[in-house]
Design a protein around this nucleic acid. Structure first.
Lengths: 214, 214
DNA sequence: CTGTTGAGGATTGTTGAACAATACCTTAGC
DNA sequence: GCTAAGGTATTGTTCAACAATCCTCAACAG
């Protein structure tokens, strides 16, 4: 038992949330889940704290915890912070260790390979990995952790979209372009491209959310 | 009772930690603190989760929670992330709402006023407020929250310094310069100055930590 | 019909005690 | 001095109970 019970419970809930089994807005009842997962209410509450930290769920006093429902304002703000962290990575690209630079290129390859095979789920996760790799160029554990949380929030927002795969496809090519600029040490151009890239992506998501009636 | 018991307990502990009553490295015993604050162990543990989220304390499995002891690597990393967030604010300065821009100027004034009165504690907190105001120019709640956590961590690091006030003084003037550049909409120069500013500050802290033998 | 008020029931918040699991300290042996 | 075994203190988890709060829904007034 390397992990605590609370951590295992949190992991189980995380899978159910990201798998869509517990869609945004669902209340996580202490009694029902406790019975289901065979843990006490106290332990379950400890697990909730872990998920709150990842902003997968939110806690309303005396009302309980709910799977978060990202609003348009949330998406806008996530992209603001993403832009700050990813540009920080891009700026550090020239002096970043080779393995970190290689990770960027690798995620682009993976995305293209997955697209060729028609595995759109993989395309999406490769895209997230690409952006995480960009921010990771900064070489900062705290930036990495913050990116992880932002990506988790974004995955929640994707639940509100009709076809997430159609969303990722047009960005495959732009990922390739960005990676090329970084390999050529054209940091300034890469940064400018990244900013318009993220602006475009944000608008696409917001459009989709409006269409889905949120 | 607008806040939950756990939140009130967390607040009490936060004060004790930032006030130096519970210095870095101190173990927070569940039994002793529970008796002291007159809450049950379960509630105390919930309070711990809140402080863990603020990275004021850390939790080691089966060993308990301890007031965090920032290492040199922590300080370096905090400054990496600060740089990312504060430069994001500076870049958005030109288009930021007037109240946010006013907050920057106000914090510089406060720092100078406090210095004139010899209130070095106030100088320090005005300095932190200045940097928080810089990041806040980005207009992002998530960036604001992240900055709050970074500043809290930094306050912990200051505990290891002999005289924090001597540290803040030389930066009063540079704050004024930075604020001036922002008011003149010279974002690029402000950004460059901010980066060297943060590099210098980081080195001063690291030097102090080495001297204090950590 | 709209809006307000007030039980009643359900859920969360908190407590205290108990036991299990783990880490730390002490002692015994070599 | 070092390693191994055992005892003790602390944390991890469970359980049952009660208090506090919110939500529902019906009754009622305007």
């Amino acid at each position: 038992m390397a992990r605590s019970t609370a951590q295992r419970v949190a992991m189980a809930l995380r899978e159910r949330i990201e798998g869509g089994e517990l869609p945004p807005g669902t209340q996580l009842s202490e009694e029902a889940l406790g019975r289901d997962l065979e843990v006490s209410r106290n332990t379950l509450r400890e697990a909730f704290r872990l998920l709150i930290h990842e902003s997968l769920v939110e806690h309303l006093l005396n009302r309980g915890v709910f799977v978060r429902v990202p609003t348009a304002a949330d998406v806008t703000d996530v992209y603001r912070m993403r832009t700050a962290l990813e540009t920080a990575g891009v700026r550090a690209a020239a002096t970043a260790p080779a393995p970190l630079r290689a990770a960027v290129a690798a995620s682009v390859d993976e995305g293209e390979r997955a697209a060729a095979e028609g595995d759109w789920r993989q395309v999406g996760s490769a895209d997230l990995r690409f952006h995480r790799a960009l921010a990771a160029l900064a070489g900062s554990p705290r930036i990495d952790a913050a990116m992880d949380r932002l990506m988790a929030e974004l995955r929640l927002a994707f639940h509100a979209m009709p076809s997430p795969h159609r969303f990722h496809q047009p960005f495959l090519q732009r990922n390739r372009v960005l990676a090329g600029l970084l390999e050529g040490n054209e940091s300034a151009r890469a940064e400018a491209e990244l900013i318009t890239y993220l602006d475009d992506a944000r608008e696409l998501i917001l459009d989709a959310m409006r269409e889905a009636g949120r």
